[in-house]
Design a protein around this nucleic acid. Structure first.
Length: 558
RNA sequence: UGGCCUAUGGUGUAAUGGUAACACUGCGGUUUUUGGUACCGUCAUUCUAGGUUCGAGUCCUAGUAGGCCAACCA
């Protein structure tokens, strides 16, 4: 039993089982992905649930690949999925594959046939579908339902031996064609698939269906609690029926329970839709930083811990939900605020000339790496007469709500001096090409002088023009401009793609940017968090905007 | 025109028959060498109608709304 109060109904189920005599030493969970695609934010929630349970109770969690359909599955997904789970920071106990159980499943199927509980149906899939009925109408029995056990055995073996083509025969459980649960209407247990399997090669010509495989796999691994999403709720009856046929009373009987899938706004997670975004070139691939795949979020610079904190915070329940993307972003900022070093980079540069600063003079200033954590120390930043600042940080005139640089008013250059706006130079189109300011030599940051302590409302980031490092910056925004792009089945989700979800610019950064390694995330002060992309070369650093800072000025300015 | 699941602020979750709580967002404010962070304040008669009870968000009934179920997918 856990020392903590149950956080949700899933934990309550576990606690109740423990109180009713389940030996806590037997607790075991599993995460069972199908290796037919990349993991996304929805999977991340399920991973955090199952592996989180393992951590909470200090009990093992298996990673099991549900690889029963060689037509869709590939080993590259097996590898990608493992990488994603490891990146999230979880460790599985046993690495399992449903395909490891093919022989056992086959043997049990033979047993069911011998007990008269399964039969070979030789109709087309259309005929079988027709007899299945509808949710409001009962089904009818297959003409092959009462085939002799011997015939069933022989046919099933022939299926296994590859003597039939796909769809000629299937093995069905004999349950109840009139059940109100469609899944109990003689569900298919095996079908012929003429494709090599990524692990078993050509050993098998028949492959077990999900329902026949999943519960039995849980049983073989002695999983106590098998948690899945709500759409599997009707499968529970069948899960239990299959277990009833083979379970040994002295062993753990796994229990399936269901929770509501957790959805995040402004994104899609269906494999088909993600593929479409890739195929249409809307994104650069499955790990494009705009994708809410785990690999995409990793590349974007989202910390694994932020995703875990997010999953933890949204909880788990049974009602439909749509969690706002800004909730996820909150945890990204929350984590990065504490963990990311600060640097200065100017995204939309305009020249600032300090007119009273000596020509040719250079100073090396000390800049703190983090206001949140002094122990992270200081770095050196060069200062000189000509700098770059953000174009939006200067106005010739502005009201007093604008506390950035304007003519005749003072502002502080972060880690440097207090300056006063003196004017600007414009080109023939009226575009500002150069801003002029004077500095107060007594006001150097950290000097301890009275002038340096002067209270000035605005603080700007800057980069020395002569020392500026040009870097490519990819400004990412939400991929969709509506909360639920796929809410309406009759409306194409593609029309909600945000055309401005990526803007690529060249920014000027302080020299320290050159040394950041791929995957490192820093805060560009006042601008947001940026992560070094793997497309970077030694000459050209490329930064992905992970997330902006909260920006109350942007709202005021509107 | 069947069966099953669900319904608590803008969003997500909690309250296990006894004063509707927490987080995010929004709004207002304090602090600040990031208009960031931190901190403070503020935003709900729990889908509707009946019933049980001293007492109902919680239990019961009916309604309403949303979701799931008719792949040889998982």
């Amino acid at each position: 039993m856990s020392d903590k109060k149950p956080a949700n109904f899933i934990e309550e189920i576990i606690e109740a089982d423990l109180e009713n005599g389940l030996n806590p030493d037997h607790l075991r969970f599993r995460f069972p992905p199908e290796p037919n695609g990349f993991l996304h934010i929805g999977h991340a929630s399920a991973i955090c649930l199952n592996f989180g349970l393992g951590e909470k109770y200090n009990k093992p969690v298996n990673l099991r690949f549900d690889d029963t359909n060689p037509a869709k599955e590939e080993s590259k997904f097996v590898e990608a999925i493992q990488k994603d789970i490891e990146w999230l920071g979880y460790k599985w106990d046993n690495l399992c594959y449903a395909s490891d159980y093919f022989q056992q499943l086959y043997d049990w199927a033979i047993q069911l046939i011998k007990e008269g509980k399964a039969y070979v149906d030789s109709q087309s899939s259309e005929q079988i579908a027709e007899q299945k009925g509808t949710p409001t109408q009962p089904g009818t029995n297959s003409p092959y339902r009462n085939r002799s056990i011997d015939d069933n055995l022989k046919l099933f073996e022939s299926m296994k031996n590859g003597e039939f083509g796909e769809s000629e025969h299937v093995l069905r459980a004999k349950i109840d064609m009139a059940s109100s649960n469609m899944l109990m209407r003689d569900p298919i247990m095996y079908r012929v698939v003429n494709k090599p399997h990524h692990r078993t090669g050509n050993d098998w010509k028949i492959y077990p269906m999900y329902d026949w495989t999943h519960g039995e796999s849980d049983y073989l691994e002695q999983i106590t609690h098998s948690f899945c999403t709500l759409e599997f709720l009707p499968h529970r009856e069948l899960y239990n029926w299959f277990l009833d046929q083979i379970v040994d009373k002295d062993k753990i009987r796994p229990k399936q329970r269901e929770f509501a899938r957790r959805n995040v706004s402004h994104t899609v997670t269906s494999k088909r839709k993600l593929q479409k975004l890739v195929d249409d070139g809307i994104v650069s691939g499955w790990d494009d930083p705009r994708m809410t795949t785990i690999s995409g979020m990793r590349r974007r610079g989202y910390p694994a811990q932020a995703i875990r904190n997010f999953a933890d915070s949204i909880g788990i329940a049974k009602r439909d939900n749509l969690v706002d993307m800004n909730h996820l972003e909150y945890f990204v900022r929350d984590y990065l605020n504490k963990e990311a070093d600060r640097v200065m980079a100017v995204l939309d540069p305009v020249k600032l000339v300090i007119t009273n600063y000596p020509e040719g003079k250079e100073e090396i200033l000390q800049a703190e790496n983090s206001q949140e954590d002094a122990s992270r120390g200081y770095r050196e930043v060069p200062f000189s007469k000509v700098l770059y600042i953000e174009r939006e940080d200067y106005r010739e005139e502005a009201n007093k709500k604008f506390f950035r640089l304007k003519n005749g008013k003072e502002v502080r250059l972060k880690n440097a001096y207090i300056i006063k706006g003196e004017g600007c130079v414009k080109d023939e189109n009226g575009v500002i090409t150069e801003i002029h300011a004077t500095y107060d030599p007594e006001s150097k940051s950290g000097s301890g002088t009275e002038a340096s302590m002067r209270r000035v409302k605005g603080t700007l980031h800057w980069v020395s023009a002569a020392h500026a490092v040009p870097v490519e910056v990819r400004l990412y925004d939400r991929l969709f401009n509506v909360a639920q792009p796929d809410a309406d089945k009759d409306v194409d989700f593609m029309q909600f793609v945000n055309k401005e979800s990526l803007k690529t610019i060249t920014a000027f950064g302080e020299p320290a940017l050159k040394d950041l390694e791929v995957g490192k995330t820093v805060q560009f002060q006042r601008m947001g968090y940026f992560s070094v992309d793997r497309d970077s070369t030694s000459e050209n650093r490329i930064f992905n905007r992970t997330v902006t800072l909260r920006d109350t000025w942007a709202k005021i300015d509107q």
